[in-house]
């Protein structure tokens, strides 16, 4: 019962924050309501006893990433109200809404129609997806940080190292792309293979 109450409240915060992101006219407000959404997710993690993930969610997403968003917004100087009644592309809103609703309906139908259908083939419905049917390995007495470290440095060591390289190389590339040697202008048609 307690879990349900926590879930309903935090789910409302998650959804409310997400709606705020797309409905607020001021980009700064949108970024701030993204924090609300991240906090809701963090609470959900706590209720699943994934304390470390909850912490990371707040520190990394709620802290670092949204601050980065705000930096970009301030740097580009778009911290004013946008007229969101005008569509950048004609029909964009309508098609986004229609496809969003369709995908949502498809997912919901997919998950709920996959529940137990009477045979022994197994349950692939909401219980299985959310892990409450017991298919997901439950946490042992070990703290989740220990388990996470265990997983990262044993089974997923290769992916972990590859991610490290990925971040390094992305930094190198980003520096090259934004570096400006003196006052160089854009050349629209550099000699090369492009011709138009």
């Amino acid at each position: 019962m307690m879990e349900l109450i926590v879930f309903v409240i935090s789910a409302a915060i998650v959804l409310g924050g997400a709606l705020g992101v797309i409905l607020f006219r001021n980009p700064v407000h949108a970024a701030l309501s993204l924090i609300a959404s991240f906090f809701g997710v963090a609470v959900l993690f706590v209720s699943q006893e994934a304390h470390f993930l909850a912490l990371v969610q707040v520190v990394v997403y709620g802290g670092a990433i949204v601050v980065l968003f705000l930096f970009v917004i301030m740097l580009l100087g778009v911290d004013r109200e946008e007229d969101i009644t005008e569509e950048p592309f004609e029909g964009q809103r309508v098609s986004a809404l229609v496809s969003g609703v369709l995908i949502f309906a498809m997912l919901m139908a997919g998950i709920f129609l996959s529940g137990r259908t009477g045979d022994d083939a197994g349950d692939f419905g909401p219980a299985a997806i959310s892990g409450s049917s017991g298919q997901v390995v439950p946490l042992t007495e070990e703290q989740d940080v220990v388990q996470l470290g265990h997983d990262l440095f044993t089974r997923n060591i290769l992916a972990f190292e590859a991610t490290g390289l990925l971040l390094t190389i992305a930094t190198v590339g980003a520096v090259v792309l934004v570096r400006n040697r003196g006052a160089e202008d854009l050349v629209v048609d550099e000699p090369g293979t492009s011709s138009r």
């Binding site: 997923n156 290769l158 992916a159 590859a162 991610t163 390289l165 590339g173 792309l177 629209v188 048609d189």
Partner: peptide, 26 residues
Amino acid sequence: ISIFVALELVSIPAYLMAAWRKRDLK
């Protein structure tokens, strides 16, 4: 997990290199 990380490791350098002629709008 490793498939996804490998795919990103293939793609992200490629995104950067595609823009390597950085003074060309194309």
